[in-house]
Design a protein around this nucleic acid. Structure first.
Lengths: 131, 131
DNA sequence: GATATTATAGAGTCAATAAGTCTGCTATGA
DNA sequence: TCATAGCAGACTTATTGACTCTATAATATC
């Protein structure tokens, strides 16, 4: 029951992009160096973020990644869903008569967490950090 | 980022014990049969619950498991902690200057879930089910 | 248009964890 | 004392996470 390291890389990289907020894209090399991770591996993670529409990529020289949307629209949940997927943390596959009440409560609990993550924006962190 | 199947077994078994609420212990055989799981495997899980003080075991003939405490003191969180451990779902091991703000938010989010699980009691489910 | 630079895709590797089995031991009620 | 129960630890197998490697595709610059 743990978040993957990939999620951590994704969060930190997005924070870096939000903080930079430059028009010209930033390459993986640069992004990878600051987190001490290989470029090939970080690439894979960033491709997921791109597919989720959070960032966009530019090939070729001077290429790299940049945000697609408005900075303050990006939430923790967006990134987590992009990396970990959207399936529920708890699935009861037993054969009960009707819906599993235990599962229902577990999903309620998960919802509490997701709600918080949905309300929390990456840009808030960026502001705090620059203080 | 998923809860283990063992947690699901633990929750269902505890619910069964709460619902039964008999003075005499119930054997693993019986508990395992209703969930279609091997007795040896369920044993391991129940031993964890016993070590956490949620249930207690009685060896020998007519032995088995029974609740230790008052039924309505047992929360979802108790069981989850007993099986999954108590370590945090998110750990940032990067070397930042100070505490990682991303980690701080992730822990806040997790807290929301844990709080709900702490407030939710197994006995509530038992009541709903018997309706 | 050639070339260097950058992202993308997909297969492959290695390690850790989850999920479950096996076997022998210990406790205890009848 | 013996049949019935739980306990412990080593073991196996499957799944997932955390990467690497290599080849390909896109593009800015010369």
């Amino acid at each position: 029951m743990k978040f993957s390291k990939a999620t951590n890389y994704a969060l930190h990289t997005t924070l870096a992009l939000v903080s930079a907020s430059s028009v010209k894209p930033i390459g993986v090399q640069q992004l990878a160096k600051s987190q001490d991770v290989s470029t090939t591996y970080l690439s894979k993670i960033l491709t997921k973020l791109a597919k989720a529409g959070i960032i966009e990529s530019a090939s070729g020289a001077q290429g790299g990644y940049r945000l697609t949307r408005n900075k303050d629209e990006i939430t923790f949940l967006d990134i987590i869903h992009a990396i970990e997927g959207t399936s529920s943390m708890f699935e009861c596959d037993f054969v009960h008569g009707d819906e599993c009440l235990i599962q229902a409560e577990m999903k309620n609990a998960e919802q509490k967490m997701l709600q918080y993550l949905k309300e929390t924006k990456i840009v808030d962190i960026a502001h705090k950090q620059s203080t």
